[in-house]
Write a protein that binds this DNA or RNA. Structure first.
Lengths: 245, 245
DNA sequence: GATAGATTATGGTCGGACCATATGCTACTT
DNA sequence: AAGTAGCATATGGTCCGACCATAATCTATC
């Protein structure tokens, strides 16, 4: 704590702590405690090196570290901008990692399976606990989705929006963040696959079945409808892989 | 792509891409494609700067970036060691982020609620799909847990082990990784809370009820038993917060 | 008053030096 | 001969000062 005065004197200090880490930790704390507000600009590198008594290289490495953790955004020629991490950014980070990590069929299935697991449970939750305005929102999303049949990119969008309602219902901000990660992961690898309206029709029918089951307050059917819908979607994703063994 | 030959000539290259990013991407690719095997040592910084024709500062920032992403481990005086990221590391990263981010009661609840959501669904899954050896494993974990009643730290350990079996059952490596993140998050904030054997007894009873419901192939009861168990655990966590409004 | 050029702020890079740590080799001591 | 202290080497960590690249601002010219 408070290295701002002790960090100078350049070649000493011995222990295994990197100076850049100390600076990064200091700045991270300042961000998380509100000393640096969201959207605010970080001090210039040349200021920071004076303030903490370290070289610019150390400051830069600290900034790289913060940027990697999503606490700041860097643009060339601009001072870094503070971005208080929310669930979306956090989940997004792990999403990127997992996305890179999931390259083979097995890995993709593992990830997709978590989505099925997640959404079947969400469907069950909705059937049990959805309030009237939740249902209205879901119905609106369903209608919008139906009207988009035939328009691939628009359909995908409204498709995601329908599922997004499911993630939003429990009122826990972590779920929408997870959904966003799924969507980005999927669109990144299968962006707007061209296909006939028949596929859209099938997917819409899936959404409709899910909605009906939820409306009927039937958890088992809601779960099953969601599972069928996603397994069908998986067959689509799976078909994009060459080695189908 | 392929900056390895174009990166030299120092002050040019214009576009908004940082050299350190290019180097980091290059190395990351090399790791993910197996060009650098797990456990292998990265080339020395002074080698990398020559190989990519960039300054050492750029190389270092790239290394910092890779280290932050968990692809390498750095130790002073040692060459960085390649650590191919698995699900555990990925989830662990987001766990750290979320852990920092979750500071107030609301945030803690949100996170804990995802655990309840997750594990109730897992209980349901187990009741429906557990195989005989799964059940035996779970029973063994239950027995070990019972024998640890009264020994706080040992009980916590066997408690986590019991839940770990639940996460392992579906055979998707992502779930155990998530469980590990939960456990680390919880133990980090409420490490070995001292308490009477009565609490252990209560928690064990919860585990037993879950097991019995799973054994009876009763998804609804398994889910409900798990929910009761975790809600009780939440009351415990909640009580550690001052502002109980 | 609008545009082009100079000024300034700031991040990005370079190169070379030196410090700190880890490991192994060498030579001296016992 | 065995052990140990110390030197040499490899490598990461830090510093400095310079220059380049980009962006915003100010100024002078048309």
């Amino acid at each position: 704590m408070d290295q701002s005065e002790k960090l100078h004197g350049h070649g000493m200090m011995g222990v295994g702590a990197r100076r850049s880490d100390a600076v990064a930790a200091e700045l991270a704390t300042m961000i998380q405690t509100g000393g640096l507000q969201e959207g605010e600009r970080l001090p210039a590198e040349r200021d920071l090196m004076q303030r903490y008594g370290v070289s610019r290289a150390a400051v830069r490495e600290a900034i790289v570290s913060l940027a990697n953790r999503g606490l700041i955004e860097t643009r060339l020629g601009h001072r870094p901008i503070v971005r208080k991490p929310d669930y979306e950014i956090a989940v997004d980070r792990v999403g990127n990692l997992v996305g890179h990590l999931v390259v083979d069929r097995k890995g993709v299935w593992n990830l997709f399976e978590t989505r099925i697991f997640m959404e079947t449970a969400l469907a069950r939750w909705a059937a049990k606990h959805a309030r009237r305005d939740d249902l209205e929102e879901l119905r609106a999303a369903l209608d919008t989705n139906r009207e988009a049949i035939g328009n691939s990119s628009l359909f995908d969008e409204t498709d995601a929006a329908f599922h997004a309602v499911m993630y939003r219902m429990p009122g826990n901000p972590i779920y929408p963040a997870i959904h966003k990660a799924y969507v980005e992961w999927l669109t990144q690898h299968w962006r707007s696959m061209k296909r006939g309206a028949g596929i859209d029709q099938m997917n819409y029918a899936g959404h409709e079945a899910i909605f009906e089951a939820i409306l009927a307050r039937d958890p088992d059917n809601a779960e099953e409808a969601m599972r069928r819908h996603l397994v069908a979607a998986w067959e689509f994703v799976r078909s994009t892989f060459p080695s189908d063994n």
